[in-house]
Computed example of a mutant assay.
Amino acid sequence: MSVFDVAEQLRESVDLAEWQWREKELTIELDVRPMEYFGNGKLLRQVWLNLLTNGIRYTGQGGMIKIRNRIHKNNVIVSFTDNGIGIDAEHIPHLFERFYKVDKARTRTEDSTGLGLSIVKEIVEMHDGFIEVESKRNQGTTFTIYLPQK
């Protein structure tokens, strides 16, 4: 556990995934401000990268992903919004279950294990936080992480 800048980690995640989003000609909109947080930076970096790569995977050619951070009521809030294929409402309650895959159409790579979002949730909960998802089919998805400042 240490103090780190959330915005710096988010920028690094975008840099690490650059070849993926450039290949699909996606627009990445970063609306991030310097923000210190005390936590496990290595694990939270995995959260940001997982949510970003999921957004890239399920957003079509020329789409957009917006990453934002802010502080509200002593919570660091980070959101990832895409204008991708979205998720039907009946699947949302199961997204964070281990090995859960929405459907074959969403699993575009054979190496997908269905573990990514369950790991994301575990890491967020290890920090006494929580994650929410809002989505509409063919309109996109927003994942929002709330991490209490300690």
Rank of each mutant, 00 (worst) to 15 (best):
Q46D: 10
V124C: 03
G39P: 02
G140F: 07
H72T: 10
A105N: 12
N40D: 13
Q149G: 05
M1L: 10
L95S: 01
R98D: 10
K73I: 04
P34A: 09
I145V: 15
D31G: 04
A89W: 02
A89R: 11
G55R: 01
F80P: 05
H127F: 00
N74D: 15
Y37F: 15
G41Q: 08
K104C: 00
L10W: 08
S135K: 01
D31C: 01
G116C: 04
N75P: 01
F80G: 03
G86T: 07
G60R: 14
T27A: 11
V47M: 08
T141V: 12
I71F: 02
K73D: 14
V133Y: 11
R33Y: 10
K73V: 03
D31Y: 04
F4E: 05
L51R: 01
W19K: 15
T59V: 10
T53H: 02
E18L: 03
W21G: 03
E12Y: 04
Y58H: 15
F80A: 04
T144G: 03
K42G: 05
R70M: 13
Q20P: 00
Q61L: 14
F38K: 14
V6Q: 06
I131V: 15
I28L: 13
D103M: 07
K101L: 14
M1H: 10
R108P: 00
I92C: 08
G62L: 06
S118L: 01
N40P: 00
Q9K: 13
A7S: 15
S2F: 05
R57C: 10
H91Y: 10
P93E: 02
G114S: 08
F143D: 00
L115V: 09
A7C: 06
W19D: 11
N138F: 06
R11T: 08
T59L: 07
D128H: 11
R98A: 11
L30V: 07
E8P: 00
V3T: 13
E125D: 09
G86D: 07
E110G: 13
S135T: 00
S135W: 01
E8I: 00
Y37E: 04
L115M: 06
E110L: 13
T144A: 08
T53R: 15
K42N: 09
I71T: 11
K150G: 12
H72W: 11
T113F: 10
D103N: 15
G55Y: 01
G86Y: 08
D88C: 04
K136P: 00
D128A: 07
F99K: 15
F99P: 00
